[in-house]
Design a protein around this nucleic acid. Sequence first.
DNA 1: GATGAATGAGCTTTCATTCAT
DNA 2: GATGAATGAAAGCTCATTCAT
Lengths: 201, 201, 201, 201
Amino acid sequence: MPATKAAAAASPKRRAAEIIDAAAAVFAEKSYHGTTTQDIAARLGIRQASLYYYVRSKEDALAQVCKLGVEGFLEFSEEIAGNGDSAAGRLAAIVRSHLAPIDVRPDYVKVFLTERQHLPKVRRKAISRTARAYEGVIEGVIRDGIRSGELAPATDPRLATLALLGMCNEATRWINTARGAGVEETARAFSRLLLDGLIRR
Amino acid sequence: MPATKAAAAASPKRRAAEIIDAAAAVFAEKSYHGTTTQDIAARLGIRQASLYYYVRSKEDALAQVCKLGVEGFLEFSEEIAGNGDSAAGRLAAIVRSHLAPIDVRPDYVKVFLTERQHLPKVRRKAISRTARAYEGVIEGVIRDGIRSGELAPATDPRLATLALLGMCNEATRWINTARGAGVEETARAFSRLLLDGLIRR
Amino acid sequence: MPATKAAAAASPKRRAAEIIDAAAAVFAEKSYHGTTTQDIAARLGIRQASLYYYVRSKEDALAQVCKLGVEGFLEFSEEIAGNGDSAAGRLAAIVRSHLAPIDVRPDYVKVFLTERQHLPKVRRKAISRTARAYEGVIEGVIRDGIRSGELAPATDPRLATLALLGMCNEATRWINTARGAGVEETARAFSRLLLDGLIRR
Amino acid sequence: MPATKAAAAASPKRRAAEIIDAAAAVFAEKSYHGTTTQDIAARLGIRQASLYYYVRSKEDALAQVCKLGVEGFLEFSEEIAGNGDSAAGRLAAIVRSHLAPIDVRPDYVKVFLTERQHLPKVRRKAISRTARAYEGVIEGVIRDGIRSGELAPATDPRLATLALLGMCNEATRWINTARGAGVEETARAFSRLLLDGLIRR
DNA sequence: GATGAATGAGCTTTCATTCAT
DNA sequence: GATGAATGAAAGCTCATTCAT
């Protein structure tokens, strides 16, 4: 029976994860520079100084959040890109898999997308490289589809990729809110839109 | 005979606009809370204290940037929505007109999109209402098109609107850069994508 | 008639020097790490934050104090070492010229002697090199005197140098206090001691 | 069979002495206020909190180090002063006995000399009294020598004492290092210097 | 118009210390 | 004996803002 209030329900590792969780939530809401370490501590019901038992610095917390926010994007996309499916099928799968982390850990993804710029150069560059690789994979699938005649030859693969990413990434702002919709629905609607367009046939 | 370097050729009003221009640029690059008034002053070649001759406060500068960043979106969209064109034509026009300010004043739009959350509640709510109205206009055009049989009946107008806005808004990150493309091209590619999709017919 | 309290008697450059003066005094009294920036501000009758208008950081203040604390040692010693005087005459002059800055700016010298270790490595090494050179000059004079037969052949020039420096440097602790004596007296007594010893002849 | 690495071979009392040893070493290197309890713990391979099993506080550690650092100075000096030897012989013995603790426990002596100022007033004053007494003993020997005609009548006993102490105390900075020399040598050189001076006879 | 000087408020971080285990 | 977890207090520093000039 734990006596202290704060140490209540927390395994050694779990507590550290909770700190990062809180950081992600507050960074997502107020932006990195708009967040004080006090904000994070308050959300956890601990004192500000106690954060530093688990986290080296505010910036380190951002780095951890961003790391978890980007994880999962690249790996699945490569897997999908390499399966033998049609280009359309693979693109639909990519949309679905891109929205998945946004569904599960929206704060982490949002922070990764909007706050990673505040990471120190070295880390930022490394992440940018990963992101660039991810875009490349999607672009490759589109090029494939054009070459094979499955996708419209007039398509600009680069801009199509940016469109796909743009609409999916902005979903961090509204997915699972009243203003928006759930992932399943969103994934279906976005795939259809991307592949078939709005025009009735 | 102007002695100071910076104060050289500047009408009273023009100078004030330059201050806001500089604020927009730095806010866009470093985020609102990541920007110091010193950053803005440095970009203008003046001293920190001199900013306050033109601007009431840092927050006031943000408000002005956001105001100019949102201007032009709503007016044109209503005009377009009300012209007698087909739904497809009107949507293409909306895409074009939405990208226009991004082309002309990317910093202002970017700041409006990402930093308006840091405005005090009253101002923020007012802007949100405008934004909501804007979304409503687009959604209306899509509903029109579905009703008239021009657009696919299975379309979710809300999600289609969010998709359109998402892909256009994210363009603030790359339009006119080497990584992206110019507006004309982008508008054409995005309209086609939205209306016809990627699949070859 | 100056209205503000603090800005009273202070030319632009003079004020900065006053800040460093205060820092030297407090560092000398409480040691570098034992001093808070608040201590320095209090001695000047200004607010802590105001220090940073003149000084980049506490460490920068230490660097400035040390720089002024070491200045004057080397230059004179080289001059003296090179004049055509006897070894005994030159050593007496070195003692006198070494005690001079201790008389004029005891705090600066004391801080240089005891706190320079807390400077960042680069600066510290540079200062150490200067100090080493200074010791070398004195040692050289002693070697000269031994070679010419003026000084006792059994003398260890290195240890004699360290003795000279030791007794002079410790004078920072008591010179011009009731516990000690004035410079003139001290210089005379130390020269005689060094050259003739305590034994009566 | 001891399980923990660090706690291996250590009697209860011996361990406490090791803690103070470590404190002395780190205080000597980084100064009292420049040392963190973590620094001391790290040098022992234990955790910060574990220090408090042996030491009441950081300040208490300083007090213990200073106590051991000053021990041995006074007792021997009184013994020497009281033996029937010549003034010169007694001064040489004092130099030797003053350098002895510097040789054996340089860190303790150095900390005593440079950090005792940070002890709370009561303790500091008590130590100062002891130090003053020590100086008095040396000064007495010199006065004796002058009175008896053994030492030069023009000698200022106070300044001669301060010279002796200055050169010996500064030896904490270099004794037994490559830059300096061993105790035996140093004691011999310093005695001769003090008594006979540098001039050849 | 512009700025040098100053500051209140607040920020991130450090640190000695405590205490239940 | 030793330590993981936590914290009160304070440190150095930044920053938006003011104001006399």
